[in-house]
Write a protein that binds this DNA or RNA. Structure first.
Lengths: 351, 351
DNA sequence: CTTAGCACTCAAATACATAGAGTGCTAAAA
DNA sequence: TTTTAGCACTCTATGTATTTGAGTGCTAAG
């Protein structure tokens, strides 16, 4: 009847919590199943191993810890990690050196948003020694600065878009007929005059509207402009992410199963599942954590994913995070992901 | 004293050659050390195992085969593979389906040279189930179609280069002072008029020459043009390659050593060593093969690299190839690399 | 020159014993 | 009622023989 406030939350006594916390911390540090004797020494509770064994039996009952075999100590389960990160974890403040490194390499080194994002991914991976991912900013945020059309052979047109932040996109579109360089130049001028500063999606809609409205009575230039722009600003659901440091994953014992690893790397290549997962965090308040099977993707079964959305202004434009073994140093990783998200947002805003 | 013509080449009797060939083929197929009994059955020579053992002893003496331990049959050494590919190998003609797949996906699907190269790399890797690499074409071959300068904040200028083949490059340069949009436009016009159609390196030199010559008496426009172009076309030693399918390497038994694998993947990331190696093949006539330590890079010790230069017109512009375990199906891989090189060249030329 | 025969070697598999870590349970102590 | 000492038990890891089988090298006969 030790009715501590904390007990009610998840039906665990203060003592059980302390022991679970100690166990998880120890296991994260050493990677070995933790026995009752070790735990007795590690926790400051001054209890005998026997007592601790009783508590461990309870925790096992609750599915928070498990033992690989009868005589092997306990290991946290996914649920154990979950409870740990939710209510027991004390996050480590970042070393100032780390923060300033992040600031420097995100803010100063990188010129274009693309480079900033590359840096963010590399930094995440380098600092955590896990795989780093940064989802590319949503297209809504991208506004047009200038567009250029160049004629190619075979009814094709090379479209060059310069967007708000010195970012250049280019694509090739197929048109119904061949356009002359002069026609295309005039069309580009028209679009630049009319639409510069608006976001790409908006332009597409405006163009579509204009086409519907003025089917008949429009000048040659405008007709060309609209025909080309219609394709130039097309959907391009640019869902993609930048991955860095997947090699780090080769450093961990628990990733030694080469077939699992192959499937995981395959998922990185395919991108689809990872993107879906990242997408789920886009509406989260801050750092979000998927432990083991929680992610719902089989390839990530023995992995944890720590994510955070990042904002430009007050608008969430993307998600970043790290992927690594469930046994990771959450107390370090969480603040790193958190701070990187903030700094990436800041760096992208200041361009 | 069986003085066959082939014997003189490397001092091996016809029979020894046949046996070595059979052994290597068998080992490549099965991955297990080959014993004398098996070899007796496999080769059509109708010899007893005992005789074969004598021959094997000779081959071992010559360093062409080795046995992992006394009772384990023989395995080809790097030198054995070398002799095999140099004089014993009968290459398999490619299946027509493979050739047409290559043609289709290189020629039709891909729009820009960048895409063609990506495809080549993916195809190499998909067809051989090894890692595919394609070195990017040399900059000498890249000619200017159009250049555009856009002013950015902080004395920076965004340079957009459109090159011969609908390829767009962009970079940001720092200039001594701020230039207005009008100035930059005039400068771009000047360069486009003056240098369009010339290769980038040539332009850089021409610009440097012009600057040296006309230090004093040049118009404002030309001065701006030269100042900016000097940086815009700067070195950019764009040595780089496109890698695909490194995951395939996880499928091979002989790549199971996770620490070696990590170092290999690291080398892929670093790119430097791989680039040097590819560079060595740039002057080769056709397909070139590096077996095991022949490459000179420790990380590639248990790997073979099969490369071929590829041409646009009659000019070699790059190198492509595959990387995999020494135990690979050379008879299949060699023609695939060879044909891909030709088709890549053709696809790049036709743009 | 070829090959049968045989002794020999070595890795891999199997079986068995032992040590050590850690558990659960019980009964006594607090 | 809670804690803990004690103990039997379980299971892995480790080490040691032993056996089996594949394959060799050598020798002597064909």
């Amino acid at each position: 009847m030790a009715g501590q406030s904390t007990e009610l939350e998840h039906g665990l006594s203060e003592r059980a919590q302390t022991l679970l916390k100690t166990l998880v911390e120890r296991y994260i540090r050493e990677g070995q199943p933790v026995g009752s004797r070790t735990l007795a020494r590690d926790s400051k509770l001054d209890l005998s191993p026997a007592t601790i064994r009783n508590v461990m039996a309870d925790l096992e009952e609750l599915g928070l810890v498990a033992s690989p075999h009868t005589s092997a100590g306990r290991v946290p389960t996914a649920r154990g990690y979950r409870l740990f990160v939710d209510s027991l974890l004390t996050v480590k403040p970042l070393r100032p050196a780390t923060v300033s490194r992040l600031k420097r390499e995100l803010g100063e080194r990188a010129e274009t948003p693309g480079e900033v994002i590359e840096s963010a991914s590399s930094l995440l991976s380098a600092i955590t020694r896990l795989a780093g991912v940064v989802m590319l900013p949503r297209a809504e945020q991208v506004t047009l600065r200038q567009v250029e059309f160049l004629p190619l052979s075979g009814n094709r047109v090379l479209v060059i878009l310069v967007t708000n932040n010195a970012e250049v996109q280019n694509r090739i579109i197929h048109t119904g007929r061949a356009y002359s360089a002069a026609e295309l130049e005039a069309a580009a001028n028209y679009i630049n005059r009319e639409f510069a500063g608006r976001d790409l999606r908006g332009i597409r809609e405006a163009v579509a509207a204009a086409m519907a409205r003025a089917r008949d009575d429009m000048g040659r230039i405008m007709e060309t402009a609209l025909a080309v722009a219609d394709r130039a600003f097309e959907g391009r659901r640019d869902d993609d992410f930048v991955l860095a440091g997947q090699n780090h994953l080769l450093e961990y014992q628990e990733m030694a199963d080469i077939e699992r690893l192959r499937r995981l790397f395959e998922a990185f290549n395919t991108k689809r599942d990872i993107l879906h997962l990242l997408d789920q965090s886009i509406d989260a308040e801050g750092v979000q954590i998927f432990i083991g099977q929680e992610s719902g993707y089989e390839v990530l079964d023995s992995c944890s994913v720590v994510t955070s959305p990042y904002r430009v202004g007050d608008q969430v434009v993307g998600v970043l995070g790290v992927i690594g073994p469930t046994r990771m140093a959450y107390d370090r990783v969480i603040p790193i992901v958190d701070v990187t998200a903030r700094l990436l947002g800041a760096a992208l805003s200041s361009e």
